[in-house]
């Protein structure tokens, strides 16, 4: 005897259609909008598609892409990391400081320090059970404080002295700047880990249903711990690259970066509640924000605050779609 149990969602075509529509909007909405904006930009502004402008957008985006990649891991588990902006600044200051010893130190020092900050936050969230919002808000304030304290209240800006480290931020390979290449590598490695490793499956499982994941034998605490470490490392790496790019570790950079990163992740289509999303869509989210900013700059007459309004609108629309989606899917 063979039994075929009908699958939910199919019996009423109406619900199925709405769900498919919402799902498509969530998955590809950002890509479609990005493509539209690129087409409009190319037609309207002759300078938009120029090599220098595209290279500019790519370089500007690369730092945010790396930060947002780490943020994607955290959000996929259902958490949030508000500390990345401050950690980004710390990474830059430490890279500039480390560059006085050599290029290896310039890269290692920020990675180790920011990794440790990620470990502390991850420990508090995963093993102590504190709310990610509070833990990383404390991180946001505390780490910025450390940055200011170590730079005489922000008045000292350490300069990157090591030339080969500076090259990582400024030189190109086949015409592409190194930060862009590194961002692409981060995305590729991250994507493989997320989609093809057991750890990646566990991240999706924890974000999908923490209690069920625990009952299924997933080491929930270890997974949650590690995503905050990854996020700290990513923010530190991006900060170091930014220091190499700008030849200095500016203590005030990265203010509000955490919000841009969260916005990029969510606009890309990753569920803010966790469990579904990927890094490619985060890249799309970052590019969307960058292109909007670039287009507004192209117009010239518009104030830059318009960009915030437009980005905010996008975010609102995406979250509305996600809410509709989760309702139709009864998640």
């Amino acid at each position: 005897m063979s039994v075929i149990v009908p699958e939910a969602g199919l019996p009423t075509t109406k619900r199925f259609d709405r769900e498919t529509l919402a799902l498509g909007a969530q998955k590809y909405g950002a890509t479609v909008v990005l493509a539209l904006l690129v087409v409009i930009g190319t037609i309207a502004f002759p300078t938009f598609a120029s090599v220098s402008n595209v290279s500019n957008i790519a370089t500007q985006s690369s730092f945010l892409v790396i930060v947002a990649a780490g943020m994607t891991f955290v959000i996929l588990t259902g958490g949030i990391d508000l500390s990345v902006g401050s950690v980004f600044a710390l990474g830059g200051v430490l890279a500039a400081y480390g560059s006085t010893f050599g290029s290896v130190e310039a890269l290692l020092l920020p990675l180790v320090a920011c990794g440790v900050i990620g470990m502390i936050q991850g420990f508090l969230v995963a093993y102590v059970g504190m709310a990610p919002f509070i833990v990383t808000l404390a991180g946001l304030l505390g780490v910025r404080g450390i940055v200011f304290a170590s730079t005489n209240a922000g008045s000292n800006t350490p300069i990157v002295s090591d030339l080969s480290f500076k090259a990582i931020g400024q030189e190109t390979l086949f015409g592409v700047r190194w930060p862009v290449i590194i961002a692409i590598v981060v995305i590729i490695v991250g994507t493989v880990l997320l989609t093809r490793s057991r750890g990646g499956q566990s991240i999706l499982a924890v974000g999908g249903s923490e209690s069920a994941a625990a009952l299924m034998g997933v080491a929930v605490a270890r997974i949650k711990f590690s995503v905050y470490v990854v996020s700290g490392l990513c923010a530190g790496l991006a900060g170091a690259l930014n220091a190499a790019y700008s030849s200095s570790g500016v203590p005030t950079v990265g203010a509000g970066l955490e919000l841009s990163a969260i916005a990029a992740v969510v606009i890309g289509g990753t569920l803010l509640t966790g469990g579904r999303g990927n890094l490619i869509s985060t890249v799309v989210g970052v590019l969307l924000l960058s292109v909007i900013q670039n287009l507004i700059n192209q117009v010239g007459s518009l104030s830059s605050s318009v960009q915030s309004v437009v980005s905010g609108l996008f975010l609102a629309i995406v979250v509305i779609v996600q809410t509709i989606l989760s309702r139709t899917q009864r998640l």
Partner: peptide
């Protein structure tokens, strides 16, 4: 189980 993962992913998670 994890609602967003596939049937196969759920059966063999871990």
């Amino acid at each position: 189980l994890i609602p967003l993962l596939s049937v196969a992913q759920n059966i063999f998670l871990g």
